[in-house]
Structures are given as C-alpha cells and as structure tokens.
Design a protein around this nucleic acid. Structure first.
Lengths: 256, 256
DNA sequence: TAATGTGAAGGCGTTCACAGCT
DNA sequence: AGCTGTGAACGCCTTCACATTA
C-alpha cells in the first residue's frame, strides 16, 4: 500500500455504493430539467421514469444519501438538486485539462455540458507545435511542454486524454507526475496508474463490439424462432452460425 | 412482451454473462497486439495483465466460451483472436450510420477503430441542409430525409446518435422505425426504445461527475489523514466540507 | 511441473414487499 | 391514503483455491 492510510474513509457510514454514484448524475439531470420547469416536488415513481430506472432502485439510492423525501408527498426538487450536487462535489469548481486536440479533443472542448456543472476547461494541450496558440472553442491550444506548469498553476486534478493510443500512457504518466489524480481516457488503451489515481475510460470501439454481440444474438434468436417456418422476409444479414454445441466441438478454424 | 418469444435463447448453455461480454473486446485488443508481435501463446496471467484484469476473472470469462486453452501452456493467440471475434460477431460486416455530424459526429466518422474491426460507416446523416454533400472523413453527408431509405437499402442495424440532446429521441424513433435495433447514444438524454432494441450510452458529463465524486472524497480523506499533523505542502484545492455527520443533520441549504 | 478450468464461497447490487411516517 | 425508507431475499459477479490435465 503506497499511501499508508486506510483504504476506506475513517468517517462513518459514508459507503455510497459505486453503482449508486454512477446513477446520481442521471437523477441530477432529470431533477435539473424539473427545476427549470419549476416543478416543486416529484415522487420516486415519476423521477425514476425520467431517469430511466425503477423506483425501488431510486429510493434505495437516495437512502444512502439520507432521508431527503417526505412520505406521502415525494421529494423537494430544489433540495434534492442541491444535495446530489454537493454529494457529487459539483458545488465546487473543477478545472480540467484536455490533452490531444484532434477531432475528438475539439469536440470535447466545444461540449457545452462541461461548464454547466462545475467543470471548467482550464487548458487545451497538444503535442503538435503548429497547433500552439490556435484557439479551439475560444481557448488557445498550448504545447505539451507547458503541461506540468499548467497543472500546477491551476491546481488541476482532472485530466482528459484524447490522444492517439500510442501517446496515451506517456501523457498519463506526465499528468499523474504533475499532480492529476483523476483521468478520463478516450484513447483505446489500458492505462497503468499508481494507487490513488482514478481512471475512467470511454471506448467507442468496445461499445460497438458489445452492441454487435447482442445484435448477432438477436439474429440467432430470430433463426431459432423461425425454425420450421418460412424464412424472414428481410434477411438483414447473413445468419451467423448460431450455435455449435455447448463445448468440446470442432471449431471452423484452428490456426497453427 | 412484444415479441412473443422466450427471453433467453432456446439454445443450450449460451448464457455468457454481460460482464464477460463487456470484457471480451479488451481481451481481443490485447490479443491483437500480441498477434501483431507474432507471439504464439500467452498465459492467463500475462494476458490478464495486458488487459488490466486479474487472471482468475479472465479464466472464468474464457470458460464461458469453451475450453480454448492448454494446461501447462496457455492460450494460442491466433486461435483465441478468432474465437472471440466470432463470439462478438466481428467476423461479419456491420454497417453503421452516424446521425448528427457536428464536432463529435465528425470525430467519430474519422475514428480509425471503426473500420478495423468489422464496422463500416455506411452513412453520415445531418439535419442541416447546408451540410448535405459535404464530405466528412471522405464520406458525403446526407440529409435526414434520406435516413429511412439508407437504413433499409444498406441493411443497417446499428445507429450512432451524436445529435444535440433535444433531437436525440426523435432521431432514435426514426432509426428504430426504420429497422435499427442497436443504438449507441452520445446525446445526454435517456432514450425510450421498444423491447428488443439495445441502447448503450456514452456520456462525458456523467463520467466527469463520477470522477469529481471520487476526487472530492480523496480531498476529504487527505483532510482526515492530516488531522492534527501539518497541512499538506500543496493544498491543491479548497477543502470541501468533508462530512457533516452520518444522517439526520441540518444541511447548509434548505430551499423552499 | 505449470497453468488451465471450475466448484464453492463471498460480496455487491437489485428487487420485493411492507412497516412507518406525513 | 399515499409515498418514502428499508430489512430481507435473490441473483449476478468476483475471488479463492485446488483438482485436473497436457
């Protein structure tokens, strides 16, 4: 253990489950929409529908934050917005650096959702010297050489990596060495970080592959459902060999 | 139940856990890298390290696919690449449409990882008539009016939504009506879809908020750890009020 | 001998169902 | 009467530890 302090906070029952934390932003978004429509209170049922979860889960989630509802009535929208914002740490300002200002980095820099909720783009950083000074989303791009200085001067603790895969680990190492402790990684690579640094990844390719798996499965189920009946009118794509037995069977291809 | 067929496939033990499916692309990526370096075999320990998981989990994951390893030796890299690709449905070609060619949509269109693994950008679609015909990533943008025709002609079953939040549900409805059954949603909205349609979402804002939660927590732990000692040399940001008791306490703000 | 494949145990998250409060 | 808050049951996922096999 590198840090020499206990893994769980010493404070009492502050163990909000990770799954719950991941849903708080969803609730917050739905609540914000209600707030803008000046809706004063909302029931767990209504809010759950707006957030796309079931109401039991929502109530359980909220129970980890405290007893913020009123039985027989529901939740006070404004109050909940504040409580969840505070719990997520959005009542303070988080400066963020984006490294790698290609297509994706530029898209992120222009993303409005950033500023709206406590996040502020402190700097855009790119390794290409010809990018330096060029404004993207109204912010001048700075060269990678400045990375450490920017992070230290602005007290940046969250970094976004939007570089090519090959550069990601190196950028990550420099971010961490300079003091960044949370990283959002868009590069298709596994990042190695020391204990105490959080990494979340967003990976288009993985998401598509997961969809493809289920899509393939659907095609297979169709085939099963249609077995013995007429073939589907629109054969959307060639049927994959849906099954070849549970195990121990001969694969179609066995290299080497 | 809309489809009138059983929820689980009728075929035998093909119940690959969702968590496993989500990791298969990671393994595949690591294996592909090994394959390019002409590494013939790999142990669960090595491959797990490359994919950023522990080896027991990896072996369990692979056990759902079948017995593809050799005891005392490890896994044949090429063979595994093929098996996982097949399992994920990547041995066939998946045409994909991207709707909403703003900064993000353009970034996605230019993303190389697309073509590399079974996915092909069949069309780029945008509601702005002035975009029509303009090439992005070498592909001419088409107007939303063409959406249904494109999907049906090309047999597209996977759609990517990169529109503003306000347009997302409407686009989603049209995609689904035209035959799309898997959607990757980049818009910050909950999408309502009929049974049988898969939606995965990628939400920058949510990811950042989750990071902020943990970041805030770290700051709190530091404060606890440093209690009674000298303050940290670099006070990275103002300490959030780390805790105000487990529950039943008075909040700082109580609106209405 | 070395590393896979897998029962068994444990932990986490979801759902149920209802007690408790307004 | 209505809706929250939550113990309890359930199911999924992870981890352990070792029997099994090349």
């Amino acid at each position: 253990m590198a840090t020499g302090r206990t893994h769980r906070p010493a404070t009492r029952s502050r163990g909000i489950p990770e799954a719950t934390v991941a849903r708080l932003p969803l609730y917050l978004r739905a609540l914000t929409a209600l707030s803008e429509r000046s809706v004063p209170t909302v029931s767990s049922e209504e809010l759950a529908a707006a957030a796309g979860v079931n109401s039991a889960k929502l109530r359980k989630d909220f129970s980890y934050l405290g007893s913020y509802g009123t039985r027989g009535v529901g939740y006070d929208v404004e109050y909940l917005v504040y409580q969840i914002s505070r719990e997520l740490g959005l009542t303070q300002d988080w400066p963020v650096v984006i490294v790698g200002i290609g297509n994706l980095g530029a898209a992120l820099a222009n993303y409005g959702g950033f500023a709206s909720r406590g996040f502020r783009v402190a700097a855009l950083i790119d390794a290409d010297p010809s990018m330096a000074g060029k404004p993207v989303a109204g912010i001048p791009v700075q060269h990678t050489d400045e990375l450490e200085k920017i992070i230290q001067d602005d007290g940046v603790s969250i970094g976004v990596i939007a570089t090519p895969a090959g550069a990601a680990q190196q950028v990550c190492d420099r971010l961490v060495a300079a003091g960044v402790t949370s990283i959002l990684n868009f590069a298709p690579t596994v990042l190695n970080v020391p204990e105490g640094v959080d990494v979340r990844k967003v990976d288009l390719s993985i998401e598509l592959q997961i969809l493809a798996f289920h899509e393939q499965r659907k095609a297979g189920e169709e085939a099963v459902a249609d077995a013995g009946a007429v073939p589907p009118v629109v054969a959307r794509k060639q049927q994959p060999s849906i099954d070849q037995g549970p195990d121990g069977d001969v694969p179609a291809v066995m290299p080497a």
